[in-house]
Write a protein that binds this DNA or RNA. Sequence first.
DNA 1: AAATCTCGTGAATCAGCATTCACTCGTTGC
DNA 2: GCAACGAGTGAATGCTGATTCACGAGATTT
Lengths: 220, 220
Amino acid sequence: MPYRRTENVVRRLAEREQTILGAAQSIVGERGMGAVQIAAVARRADIAAGTIYRYFPSKNDLVAEVIAAAACRELVAMHAAGDGAPGPLSALAACVATFAARALHDRRLAWAIMAEPIDPDIDALRLNFRRAIAAELEMRISTAIADGHLPAQDVRVAAAGVIGALLEGLLGPLAPQAENAREAVQAMTLFALRALGVVDARARGLVAQCPLPANVVSGL
Amino acid sequence: MPYRRTENVVRRLAEREQTILGAAQSIVGERGMGAVQIAAVARRADIAAGTIYRYFPSKNDLVAEVIAAAACRELVAMHAAGDGAPGPLSALAACVATFAARALHDRRLAWAIMAEPIDPDIDALRLNFRRAIAAELEMRISTAIADGHLPAQDVRVAAAGVIGALLEGLLGPLAPQAENAREAVQAMTLFALRALGVVDARARGLVAQCPLPANVVSGL
DNA sequence: AAATCTCGTGAATCAGCATTCACTCGTTGC
DNA sequence: GCAACGAGTGAATGCTGATTCACGAGATTT
């Protein structure tokens, strides 16, 4: 009979794979995509460089998994936030605020994953992630338009614009550093809602009712 | 008497420097920052790789000059567009539309210069450019607020948000490719004005009066 | 316990690219 | 015309970082 992996070995392998992924992610979060080097990941995971290739066929595959995992977490959080809201506009506001709050919580990681280009292959993958995030927003926006809460507009462009505004306003190099995260999230959410056509006063009301950043961040 | 440069030689040197800068810029415009390699620039400029180092101490310095030149052109165009408008809100709209139209005209170049990170040193430089663009917008926004045309808001965040929305909505990977540039510019300008607090109807009016993209692009 | 088999290792290899430098050639000053 | 000088050259150098591989260690099977 051929060699077969013991239960124990399977677990150890799976654990190590997670260790590697975790090491890679923590490096991304601390120093950006550019700092993800096989040697560095290996060092942080406390294994040899070659070992990484027992788990991932290439560096790109490793990075891809890091991105995919983060993408999945964000999508779930956004979707849940929207579903929990009472109406279409509230759902939209919750969606935006959730994305903003979570991104702000892990600025560097979010920026690296959403916007920091490294390699054409990786960029293609990241594109899927962005598309998925955008699709979630588009869905909320479309619903709000259909219900007459927003003026008619090109949903694709609107969603992209909102994402761009959030990234740049909260994470980008121009964003005011640190200070009060909650205020920043609220300011950008307000900005985004107005951009989509909600009048100022109404938008302020919606923002005030949004779940607090502290809540949406849980489970990161 | 020591060697002295002839009038003729001086011109030739200056021309060649421009040739190199032009080659670098055209590569950025076609294939992004990542494609700017000394060998490639030299090939396009039809000179030897080593020659580039007679004109620029390092690749970073070369890239820096490409960025600075582009930044300067954009700032001048934006400023002029705003100054030519009849009122504060029109100026704001013209500023935004101009930025949008010009960016869209040279999508790749604009994206590369505004958003494509390569090297920490370069990033720092790009930051200045973004700050300058943002400052121009901030100035227009502040004026409009002071005149009571916009609700009070954090001008820094607002300007950053507008830039992010424009970049992402028009140039980013999610932006609908090609099609009608004029429409896209108008849609994003409308989006930005609403984001800043102009109500939909009024914003539409302002956008309709903006100079056409065809005009603002001249002189690129 | 012997025979296989996979895992982990890390030094060596390979590739891409910026940068250098010894050299050639056209200019300049006499 | 000729000696000095700086511009132009491009092959060689050097560095950085991903990927490979031959080997020793630990697991699994008989």
